[in-house]
Amino acid sequence: DETGKFLVLALYDYQEKSPREVTAKKGDILTLLNSTNKDWWKVEVNGRQGFVPAAYVKFL
């Protein structure tokens, strides 16, 4: 159920650099879980949760 969740689009490829991050490919649609940090947003992609740089994604 996606009610109340926001989707964001990956603008660039991002390769995770730590276990707390997730890899995303340009064009991926990610479920935004938390955007309270202006630099790192928590997302879910391909069943995995983790952080990506906020500058790499935008709201749909």
Score class of each variant (00 low, 15 high):
residue 1 D to Q: 14
residue 2 E to A: 14
residue 2 E to P: 13
residue 2 E to T: 14
residue 2 E to L: 14
residue 4 G to C: 15
residue 5 K to M: 12
residue 5 K to G: 11
residue 6 F to M: 13
residue 7 L to R: 08
residue 8 V to L: 15
residue 9 L to E: 12
residue 9 L to V: 15
residue 10 A to C: 15
residue 12 Y to W: 11
residue 13 D to R: 02
residue 13 D to V: 07
residue 14 Y to M: 02
residue 15 Q to T: 14
residue 15 Q to M: 13
residue 16 E to K: 12
residue 16 E to R: 10
residue 17 K to Q: 13
residue 18 S to G: 13
residue 18 S to M: 06
residue 18 S to F: 06
residue 19 P to L: 11
residue 20 R to V: 11
residue 21 E to A: 05
residue 21 E to I: 06
residue 22 V to S: 02
residue 23 T to R: 05
residue 24 A to Y: 11
residue 24 A to N: 02
residue 25 K to R: 12
residue 25 K to A: 07
residue 25 K to Q: 08
residue 25 K to F: 09
residue 28 D to Q: 13
residue 28 D to T: 06
residue 30 L to K: 00
residue 30 L to I: 08
residue 31 T to W: 11
residue 31 T to Y: 11
residue 31 T to P: 04
residue 31 T to H: 09
residue 31 T to S: 06
residue 32 L to D: 00
residue 33 L to Q: 01
residue 33 L to D: 00
residue 33 L to K: 03
residue 33 L to W: 04
residue 35 S to A: 14
residue 36 T to I: 09
residue 37 N to H: 10
residue 37 N to F: 07
residue 38 K to M: 09
residue 38 K to P: 14
residue 40 W to F: 05
residue 41 W to D: 00
residue 41 W to I: 08
residue 42 K to R: 10
residue 42 K to Q: 12
residue 43 V to H: 00
residue 43 V to G: 01
residue 43 V to N: 00
residue 44 E to N: 03
residue 44 E to G: 03
residue 44 E to Q: 07
residue 45 V to D: 00
residue 46 N to W: 06
residue 46 N to K: 07
residue 48 R to G: 04
residue 49 Q to F: 07
residue 49 Q to T: 14
residue 49 Q to L: 07
residue 49 Q to E: 11
residue 50 G to K: 02
residue 50 G to E: 01
residue 51 F to L: 07
residue 51 F to P: 00
residue 52 V to F: 15
residue 52 V to H: 01
residue 52 V to L: 13
residue 52 V to A: 01
residue 53 P to D: 05
residue 53 P to M: 09
residue 53 P to T: 08
residue 54 A to Y: 04
residue 55 A to Y: 09
residue 55 A to C: 14
residue 56 Y to H: 08
residue 56 Y to T: 11
residue 56 Y to N: 08
residue 56 Y to L: 15
residue 56 Y to C: 15
residue 58 K to G: 12
residue 58 K to S: 11
residue 58 K to D: 10
residue 59 F to N: 07
residue 59 F to M: 14
residue 59 F to K: 10
residue 59 F to Q: 09
